[in-house]
């Protein structure tokens, strides 16, 4: 097959963005160097569409950029004060839903939730906190699972299913009770076949999945988002390094 034909009459924030058949608005935007904020999307896995940070306005109607196929004549607005205000509200919702104490979190500085909040200029979580205690699972010899920081992006679920072929993770519960579960009758990560070398151990955008014995090897102040804006990092074709 030759290179797919490109159409280029979609615009994002006034810029012409070429796309090929099957690409989503997000795919096309990232390829063209146009940043659309996102948290649950990672180009290496099936699009998911749950965090809603990537919602854009297409010909006046809101659509989820990471799942919506790009199409002819789409006039997309993304970097608008209104959408960024609403995106900030979504990030604030994620902050109050979980228990995020950045100063005490090993992911701080490498965390995409935090970096998205910086990008959207979040000064405070604004809403009332839920303060729901959530489980911390240290049963695995090499990996911590701290659900206080899980934002339900399902990247670990997808990575374990699509890449590792293991299905270590799944989702149970409903509504605000929705939570990550692991593939063991005991409910403990240590009783699954999860390994620190699994892809799923390295895709968590937050500090919910952490490799043990790596803590603070890179000091605060020298981490990815201490030097780079999330838009630069997420636009690189490669994943941000967690090391």
């Amino acid at each position: 097959m030759g290179a797919p034909a490109m159409s280029n009459n979609m615009t994002i924030d006034g810029k012409h963005v070429p796309f090929s058949d099957g690409q989503t608005i997000m795919d096309a935007a990232l390829a063209a160097g146009v940043y659309i904020p996102h948290l649950c999307h990672n180009p290496q896995f099936e699009p998911h569409g749950s965090c809603k940070l990537c919602v854009v306005s297409v010909n006046g109607r809101n659509m989820t950029a990471c799942t919506m196929p790009a199409a002819e004549d789409m006039v997309v607005a993304s970097n608008t004060p209104e959408l960024n205000r609403d995106r900030k509200a979504l990030v604030q919702m994620l902050f109050v839903e979980g228990n995020h104490i950045c100063p005490a979190c090993e992911a701080s500085g490498n965390c995409q939730l935090q970096a998205a909040a910086y990008y959207l200029e979040m000064q405070s979580p604004h809403y009332t906190h839920f303060y729901q205690p959530r489980a911390v699972d240290a049963s695995h010899p090499d990996i911590f699972l701290d659900l206080n920081r899980c934002i339900l992006c399902e990247l670990c679920v997808r990575a374990s299913r699509e890449v590792d072929g293991k299905n270590v993770f799944g989702i149970s519960g409903r509504g605000i009770g929705t939570h990550l579960v692991v593939n063991a009758a005991s409910g403990r990560l240590g009783d699954t076949n999860f390994a620190a070398t699994d892809k799923a151990a390295h895709v968590c955008p937050t500090g919910a999945i952490l490799i043990k014995r790596q803590g603070y090897r890179i000091p605060i102040g020298q981490r990815t988002f201490d030097h780079h804006n999330i838009s630069e990092v997420q636009m690189k074709p490669q994943e941000p390094e967690h090391e």
Binding site: G49, S50, C51, K52, L53, L90, M93, L94, V96, E97, Y127, T128, F130, I151, L152, G173, R174, G175, I176, G177, T178
Partner: peptide
């Protein structure tokens, strides 16, 4: 609505709870 939200997307999962409160 807070009881029936499926919990998939952020605005509805968290928003319906905040609205209820």
């Amino acid at each position: 609505f807070a009881h029936e939200s499926c919990g998939f997307c952020t605005p509805c999962r968290v928003g319906t709870q905040l609205q209820k409160k």
